[in-house]
Structures are given as C-alpha cells and as structure tokens.
Simulated assay, not measured.
Amino acid sequence: MMMKETLNRALRVAAIAASLGAAAGLAQAHGDVTPQAVDTSALKAITEGWVEKNPYRKNDEAIRIGSSAFNQNCARCHGIGAVSGGIAPDLRMLPAGDEGDEYFIGRIRHGVTRNGAVYMPPFEGTLTQEAMWAIRAWLETVHVE
C-alpha cells in the first residue's frame, strides 16, 4: 500500500510539473519581445520634428498600419485589440482627439518608470514618429468612454 501511495504521489508531482511547464510556454505566447519594424512608407513623412497633434487622424492607411504596428509591438502588454487584461493600461480609454495626443506621444516616446522600475520602455529611437502616430490613429478607432 505504501508503494502505491508513493507512486501516486510521484505521478501527481510529475503531472503538476508538466502543467507548470506548459503554462510557462503559454506565458511567452505573445511572441518576440523585440520591437518589430513598422513600414510607414505609404504615409506622408513628418519632417518638421516632433508634432503635438496626430497628423494621421482618420487616415485609413495610417489606421491599417497602426493596427498592425500595435499588434506587433503593444498587444503583448496592452492586450489584443487594446483590451487590457490588467497588466498595462487599457488604451481604448485614452481621451480621443487632440486631448489624448500629448499623453500618448509622451508615454510612447519616453516610456514610464516608477521608483526605478520600468513599466513601459521608451520607443523613441525604436519606432518612428510616423509609426507612433499611426498607432494612435488606430487606437482612436477602438476608443471607448
């Protein structure tokens, strides 16, 4: 009887270990954490330095590019479709229009650090201004109050 209990316990431990291993694999299911390049060649280039208001608002091509760019670079933390699971802010709730532009561009450019911990990495130098504004254009299409 003692040997059967030991064997059952060993099988339970093995099953738990296998489950934890599978769960660890799922935790990385969002893919590579390396920022992905965004092709913005179809958009008019921004040449006057950093702009304060989104020049691509309601631009269908920018929205298409922004959707792809968000899924490749932002969804792993901010959620697919920008529906956050609680890890990071739900970006659908950013103020729409010019009101939310300053907040958005400041955070995506410079990132967010609190008490020395990086909550969001800075994307300036990784994503172009055009890519950032395209993401913002797409976010406004999924905005909720």
Score class of each variant (00 low, 15 high):
Gly97Glu: 06
Arg109Ser: 14
Ile108Lys: 02
Trp50Asp: 14
Leu7His: 04
Ser67Asn: 15
Glu145Lys: 14
Ser84Tyr: 07
Asn59Thr: 03
Glu48Thr: 14
Val13His: 12
Arg12Ala: 15
Asp32His: 06
Leu127Ser: 00
Leu7Met: 14
Gly85Phe: 03
Gly66Pro: 03
Phe104Gly: 08
Val38Phe: 00
Gly25Leu: 13
Pro122Trp: 03
Gln28Thr: 15
Asp32Glu: 10
Gly49Val: 11
Gly111Tyr: 00
Lys4Ser: 06
Val38Asp: 01
Thr40Ser: 06
Ala134Phe: 05
Gly125Asp: 08
Ala69Tyr: 00
Glu140Ala: 13
Lys58Trp: 02
Met3Gly: 09
Met93Cys: 04
Gly31Asp: 02
Ser19Asp: 06
Asp90Ser: 06
Met3Ala: 12
Ala24Glu: 08
Glu48Asp: 13
Tyr103Gly: 00
Asn71Arg: 10
Ile108Met: 02
Cys77Asp: 09
Ser68Gly: 07
Val112Tyr: 02
Leu127Gly: 04
Gln36Asp: 05
Phe70Ile: 04
Arg64Ser: 11
Val51Leu: 13
Ile80Tyr: 05
Pro95His: 03
Val112Leu: 12
Ile108Asp: 06
Gln129Val: 08
Glu52Lys: 10
Pro122Thr: 12
Thr40Phe: 03
Asp60Ala: 15
Trp138Lys: 07
Ile135Lys: 05
Ala75Trp: 00
Gly100Ile: 01
Asp101Asn: 12
Asp32Leu: 09
Thr141Arg: 05
Ile63Thr: 08
Thr6Leu: 15
Leu11Met: 15
Phe70His: 07
Arg114Gly: 01
Ala69Arg: 08
Arg107Thr: 07
Cys77Gln: 09
Gly49Leu: 08
Met120Ile: 04
Leu20Ser: 10
Ala27Lys: 09
Trp50Ser: 10
Thr128Cys: 03
Ile46Ser: 07
Gly116Phe: 09
Arg136Gly: 06
Met1Val: 07
Glu61Ala: 05
Trp133Asp: 07
Val13Asn: 13
Thr40Leu: 04
Tyr103Arg: 13
Tyr56Arg: 00
Arg92Asp: 00
His110Tyr: 11
Ala22Gly: 14
Gln36Ile: 11
Pro55Asn: 04
Asp60Glu: 12
Met120Ser: 10
Gln36Asn: 09
Ala29Glu: 01
Val118Met: 12
Ala14Trp: 03
Asn54Pro: 01
Met120Thr: 09
Asn59Tyr: 04
Leu26Asn: 11
Ala75Asn: 12
Ala134Pro: 01
His110Trp: 01
Glu140Tyr: 11
His30Lys: 14
Asn8Met: 15
Glu140Trp: 13
Ala117Arg: 13
Tyr56His: 03
Glu102Ile: 00
Ala29Arg: 05
Asp39Leu: 05
Ser19Met: 15
Gly111Val: 06
Leu43Cys: 05
Val118Thr: 14
Ala23Asn: 10
Met1Tyr: 12
Gly79Glu: 03
Ser84Gln: 06
Gln28Ile: 10
Met93Ile: 09
Gly125Tyr: 03
Gln28Pro: 02
Val38Ile: 01
Thr126Ile: 15
Ile65Glu: 00
His30Phe: 11
Gly81Ile: 10
Gly85Gln: 09
Ser68Val: 14
Pro89Arg: 09
Gln28Asn: 14
Pro95Ile: 02
His78Lys: 12
Gly111Asn: 01
His78Phe: 07
Leu94Asp: 02
Arg114Ser: 12
Val118Asn: 03
Asp101Trp: 01
